[in-house]
């Protein structure tokens, strides 16, 4: 599958094989409380299976600095 990590620094990864959203997040060493996984403009819950030919995007929700 193609994984596009949108921020904080945009990068693209190729991950071999199908797996659930929670497994992908764990594999990428991300905190599930801090990210959202998007496929076809919709958000995916942790139990959704991502197929090998899918493209998903991962958005980090965390921002810092002064507000």
């Amino acid at each position: 599958m193609k994984v596009i990590i949108r921020n904080p620094r945009r990068r693209e990864l190729e991950v071999e094989g199908s797996r659930r959203v929670d497994a992908l997040i764990k594999e990428l060493d991300l905190n599930p409380e801090q990210v959202l996984v998007i496929r076809d403009d919709d958000l995916l819950t942790r139990d959704v299976m991502i197929r090998n030919d899918d493209t998903v995007e991962i958005v980090s929700a965390i921002s810092g600095g002064t507000q």
Binding site: E33, Q34, V35, L36, I38, L43, V59, A61, I62, S63
Partner: peptide, 9 residues
């Protein structure tokens, strides 16, 4: 923050 991002998306 994650809930806000979900709303925005």
């Amino acid at each position: 923050e994650r809930e806000v991002a979900a709303n925005a998306i």
